[in-house]
Deep mutational scan, measured.
Amino acid sequence: NQASVVANQLIPINTALTLVMMRSEVVTPVGIPADDIPRLVSMQVNRAVPLGTTLMPDMVKGYP
């Protein structure tokens, strides 16, 4: 099973992602692959992302 990117904390709308905000976890449904975490750094979320939420491609501005 492939690990996905999961919010490690509440991420407010328009926040630029940092490594501490994300963790990898095997979840269903599958979200953004954990391998993409380095690419996500400094990209902004377009909505508030609660703790434990799987990051989906449509939540991150400019992804992929």
Rank of each mutant, 00 (worst) to 15 (best):
P29S: 04
V30W: 08
T28D: 15
Q2V: 14
V20F: 09
T18D: 06
V27I: 06
I32A: 02
V26C: 07
V49W: 02
V60M: 06
I13L: 13
I32F: 03
M56K: 09
P64W: 04
P12Q: 09
P64D: 13
V27T: 10
G52E: 04
V6A: 03
T53S: 13
Y63H: 07
D35K: 06
T28E: 15
V49D: 02
L40H: 01
T28Y: 08
R47V: 14
L51F: 11
M59F: 14
V5A: 14
N14C: 06
R39S: 10
T15Y: 06
E25V: 10
S24R: 05
T28C: 15
V26Q: 08
A48E: 13
P50A: 14
L17K: 00
I13A: 09
Q9K: 09
R47F: 09
A34R: 04
I13G: 09
P57T: 08
V26Y: 12
P64H: 14
T18H: 05
I11S: 01
N8T: 15
S24H: 15
N14H: 10
P50E: 15
V20R: 06
P33F: 14
R39C: 14
D36I: 10
M56P: 02
I13V: 13
M22R: 00
E25R: 04
P57D: 05
N46F: 06
N8V: 12
L19P: 08
Q44M: 13
M22W: 02
M59A: 09
D36W: 08
A3C: 15
N14A: 07
P29F: 04
L10P: 11
P38S: 10
D58W: 09
Y63D: 06
V27E: 02
A3V: 06
L17F: 01
G31A: 03
V20S: 14
V27R: 07
R23K: 11
M43G: 03
M21G: 03
L17T: 00
T53V: 14
R39E: 05
A3T: 14
V6K: 03
D58N: 12
A3Q: 09
R23G: 08
V26K: 04
T15W: 05
I32Y: 02
V30D: 15
I37N: 00
G31N: 01
N8Q: 10
V41I: 13
Q9G: 07
L40C: 03
T15M: 10
P50W: 07
L51S: 13
L51V: 11
